[in-house]
Amino acid sequence: MNKLASIRIFVTVAQCLSFAEAAKQLRVSSSVVTRGVAMLEKDLDVRLVNRTTRHVSLTPVGKQYLEYAIDLMKLLESMDECVADATQQPAGCLRISASASFASTDLPHLLTGYRSIQPRMNFELSVFETMSDIDPAGFDICFNAARRLKDSSLICKPIAQTCDVIVASPSYLERHAAPRALADLASHDVLLASDAPSRYWEFRDRNGTQRVVVRPIMNLQSPLMVKRAACAGLGIARLPRSVVMDELSDGRLRMVLNDAELCESEWTVWLLYSSHRHMPIVLRAFIDFVAGFYEKRSFEHAQRSTGNPMQMHPDLVWSGV
């Protein structure tokens, strides 16, 4: 470990006053953080941090050293920005948080595409099930797929939309006749994601809205776990189409009640980030790429599906940023 890495670790520990929290923010083990601070103290031949089993604090020398260390980190960031401005090529590390469903579907394609044109960019990725799991200070940009977005102090830009579909595996449908009418759902085993309506599903037709009682045998927090349970043949699931697109394509899952229109089935993928008077070039460039990625993908899908680029697929509608 070089001295610069040790200084970066020390700054994070000093700001968190916790070795464990610093390790979490830096995405490294606690032993790496402990070793980094110890190496810096050995190199300087002075104690910077007082630590006990319950408390972490800075020594007087540590507080003074922290001021210079923070200035050094800011200088390094400015140096990276200077090079990026001069070459018009973003460089550095982007901290990304993403919901588990988005991280397992679109995000790898986004990052692959972006790094192919900006090879000097690196990423730190954290994955969450709910927004309450993350700290807004811990990311530069966040992707969240949600039915409804809660109030947020962040800038929130819609970038894509999808909708729920009802699916089951071939093995399940071999054991249980596929539902042909909405009333048939009452006799089927239903798998629920925790954010889905739990007691009944509502459908819309020309006669109005019809409420159907469902019989859940399992309620899971993660849509990805619901998908795995559905693929294993455990029951019928209601999931975002984008989450099960691959499984529908290769036959691991099949849609049922295709003609039924679910109420409150829409999902929106949101791009969230803090307000900046002067937005860093690395962030602005990535946001622009994301916008272009979805605009291009929806256009291409519409051409393949209908030959008419003005008819966008509902799962790939670009909402603009």
Rank of each mutant, 00 (worst) to 15 (best):
303 Q>L: 15
308 N>R: 11
166 I>V: 15
162 T>A: 04
247 E>T: 05
282 V>M: 12
152 S>H: 10
137 A>E: 07
257 L>R: 02
300 E>A: 14
114 Y>M: 12
38 A>H: 13
144 N>M: 01
290 V>F: 04
100 A>W: 13
318 W>L: 03
117 I>D: 08
230 A>L: 09
188 H>S: 12
119 P>N: 05
99 S>N: 10
202 E>N: 11
295 E>I: 03
129 E>V: 14
19 F>D: 01
4 L>T: 14
125 L>G: 09
26 L>G: 01
202 E>S: 13
110 L>F: 06
310 M>K: 09
266 E>T: 06
84 A>H: 07
275 S>P: 01
316 L>W: 03
290 V>C: 14
15 Q>L: 10
178 A>S: 13
29 S>L: 00
85 D>G: 09
75 L>K: 15
87 T>F: 06
307 G>D: 05
2 N>M: 08
130 T>D: 14
70 I>C: 00
241 R>H: 15
82 C>S: 14
25 Q>T: 06
104 S>D: 07
39 M>T: 14
236 I>Y: 09
278 H>L: 14
136 P>F: 04
146 A>V: 11
72 L>V: 00
252 R>S: 11
194 S>D: 13
150 K>L: 13
95 R>A: 11
316 L>K: 11
37 V>A: 08
200 Y>T: 06
86 A>N: 15
79 M>I: 15
60 P>L: 06
248 L>T: 02
76 L>P: 05
112 T>R: 12
212 V>S: 00
43 D>S: 13
77 E>S: 07
315 D>Y: 09
248 L>R: 04
110 L>Q: 14
98 A>M: 04
137 A>I: 00
87 T>C: 10
90 P>M: 09
162 T>P: 06
320 G>R: 05
158 P>F: 05
15 Q>H: 09
84 A>C: 13
48 L>G: 02
193 A>K: 14
173 L>F: 08
229 A>M: 11
131 M>T: 07
63 K>I: 03
141 I>F: 05
141 I>M: 04
278 H>P: 02
270 W>C: 06
295 E>A: 07
